[in-house]
């Protein structure tokens, strides 16, 4: 039991930081895809979705190359910290971010596309700039879809295995997350503790998906029910 706590804590840490990265980047990319027409949009759409279509191991391999001594991310971090990012907990964050990114962007895209562009035009006409319009009109109206996307990204980040084990490794106490720890325990025949962590994964997944589905399915607001309108027929 005692050995589980640091593993769960690191997993949560990785998932939280990964979600913190994908939220702003995902919002910008989704907004570009939904509201803007530009050259290379088709290409961007494919690149964003690519991690969905690739084996996570391949994503991990590409990331390992990027953060290694020859990749540009590796060179930047070597310049800044004197070492590459490979086999650090932050490499696990990168792996989780990239793998969960398509899911996050997809949810955000659907949420933003559901906002009537006319409302944004109206806000600008009333003097709000693009940023203010986004934060006071677009985002509040897309709120539920955005939160749902964040949750989906969070559970995906928590359960990330393939890319993580390649680029971050499976170092107990340093980069071992719940999924990689389960892998180690199964490999070594430690089924009891493997089952324990599997149950933790199951619990976190069920909770996050339940909240996700509840957010997307509940009625918009109590004010929109027909009953209320019937009670106020005045003009």
């Amino acid at each position: 039991m005692m050995f589980d706590i640091p593993v769960i804590a690191l997993s949560l840490q990785v998932a939280f930081v990964a979600t913190g990265l994908t939220l702003p980047v995902g919002l910008i990319v989704a907004w570009l895809l939904v509201r803007k027409d530009f050259r290379g949009k088709f290409f961007l759409d494919i690149v964003v979705s690519l991690p969905l279509a690739l084996p996570p191991v391949v994503v991990g391999y590409v990331l390992l190359w990027l953060v290694g001594t020859h990749g540009w991310l590796g060179q930047i971090s070597q310049g800044l910290f004197g070492s590459t990012l490979a086999f650090t907990w932050f490499a696990a964050v990168l792996a989780s971010s990239v793998v969960s990114f398509p899911l996050v962007v997809r949810s955000f895209t659907i949420a933003l596309a559901g906002v009537d562009p006319k409302l944004e035009v109206a806000a600008k006409g009333l003097g709000a700039g693009s940023l203010r319009t986004f934060f006071t009109v677009t985002l509040p109206l897309a709120q539920r879809g955005v939160i749902a996307g964040v949750l989906l990204g969070f559970v995906r980040a928590l359960s990330e295995f393939g890319a993580t084990i390649i680029v971050a490794g499976n170092i107990p106490g340093r980069t071992q997350t719940v999924p990689t720890a389960i892998f180690t325990r199964i490999s070594s025949g430690d089924t009891n503790s493997a089952w324990r962590l599997a149950l933790v994964s199951l619990l976190l997944g069920v909770i996050a998906l339940a909240v996700h589905n509840w957010l997307l399915n509940r009625p918009r607001s109590p004010n929109t029910t027909g009953l209320n309108r019937l009670n106020n027929p005045s003009s």
Binding site: D116, K118, L119, V121, A122, A123, K124, G125, L126, G127, A128, G129, T136, V137, P140, L141
Partner: peptide, 29 residues
């Protein structure tokens, strides 16, 4: 740009902000 023209527009369906009450709608701009 539109936000610098100070042109008020009233649309066919009103285009009111659905997440704001009447007062916040009127006070938005």
């Amino acid at each position: 740009t539109p936000e610098n023209r100070r042109v008020g527009t009233v649309y066919q369906d009103g285009a009111l902000f659905p997440h704001l009450d009447v007062r916040s709608n009127i006070e938005f701009g």
